[in-house]
């Protein structure tokens, strides 16, 4: 036995098997367990009386879940498009040998080092009508100035978009900038020869050639959207009312506060399926590339 064990220590397979046991149990075992719970009517504790897909049907009738999903789509689209546009513009501008490029990069990227909790709190204070931007503009004399999105149920979601773009635009910038720097110099020579306006060159030639770069940006941003929890908790806590609820928060609340395990499990499984669906094209191309 010890001899066998010693021989295994020469081989990486031993380590791989040990680590994959852990990953298999804690990732895929947990997912399987969550899926099984989603087929039951467990509330406070797991009980394995199966009811099929009832919880999923239940979700479709749950107003908070529906609102959460719509919010995620609205938030996700605006956040992703906004980050891509701002990040790309910053990358284009920084790609011009400007003075102080390093300083600008540092400034655009530092939000990524800050937690979503602090990000959310900071923007909550800035956008709080009684002390933030609205109060400041009123102090300067515009007494009727109104910027109270944070407290408006139909606007609060946009404050989350602003805060998220603030945090993630730098990520897009750094990835796109790396892509721009690897564009072939001859391509630019050709473009200059043709006398194409610079903005058209970007839209029609350069960016289409950088599709994989944008694809990975989108994958990263989408996974942030699906898992978005901390920022909401810190900034709006889902409110006013349920106007900024999202699926990740729905699931956590129903697991740990409202004690409806099966409904929370169903919600989590749907989140997982959505992640995988979004990820599938990316994983597919990754694997194709390797073969």
């Amino acid at each position: 036995m010890t001899h066998w064990f010693k021989r295994q220590m020469f081989r990486p397979v031993f380590t791989v098997v040990a680590f994959f046991a852990v990953i298999a149990i804690f990732f895929y075992g947990s997912i399987g367990w969550t899926f099984i719970m989603s087929l039951t009517k467990s509330t406070l504790i797991p009980r394995y009386d199966f009811v099929g897909f009832d919880q999923y049907v239940e979700l479709m009738d749950n107003k908070r879940w529906i609102v959460s999903c719509i919010n995620m789509v609205v938030f996700g689209l605006l956040f992703i498009i906004g980050s891509l546009i701002l990040g790309s513009i910053l990358a284009i501008l920084l790609d011009r040998g400007i003075a102080g490029e390093g300083a600008f990069r540092t400034i655009f990227l530092y939000p990524l080092a800050i937690s979503l909790i602090v990000t959310g709190l900071g923007w909550r204070w800035l956008l709080d009508p009684s002390i933030g931007i609205q109060a400041m503009v009123r102090d300067m004399g515009w007494d009727n100035f109104v910027f109270d999105w944070l407290t408006q149920p139909d606007r609060a979601i946009y404050t989350l978009v602003i805060a998220s773009i603030w945090r993630s635009a730098g990520l897009v910038m750094i990835i796109v900038l790396a892509g721009l720097r690897s564009v072939d110099g001859d391509l630019w020579k050709a473009i200059r020869m043709e006398n194409v306006p610079v903005w058209r060159a970007y839209v029609q030639v350069i960016f289409p050639g950088m599709r994989p770069v944008f694809a990975s940006c989108i994958v990263l941003l989408m996974s942030e959207v699906i898992r978005g929890y901390d920022l909401i908790v810190a900034m709006t806590n889902g409110g006013p009312g349920i106007s900024t609820e999202m699926p990740a928060k729905f699931a956590v609340d129903f697991f740990f506060a409202r004690m409806n395990l099966s409904l929370a499990s169903a919600a989590s499984i749907l989140m997982l399926l959505l992640s995988l669906l979004m990820l599938a094209p990316y994983l597919y191309s990754e694997f194709r590339r390797r073969d």
Partner: peptide, 22 residues
Amino acid sequence: MLLILIGLFVPYQAMLYPTVKM
């Protein structure tokens, strides 16, 4: 590698409760 890559994108929500139990 595929299992690991997918693991990167699994929302914690789909693992949290069983992890609590374990």
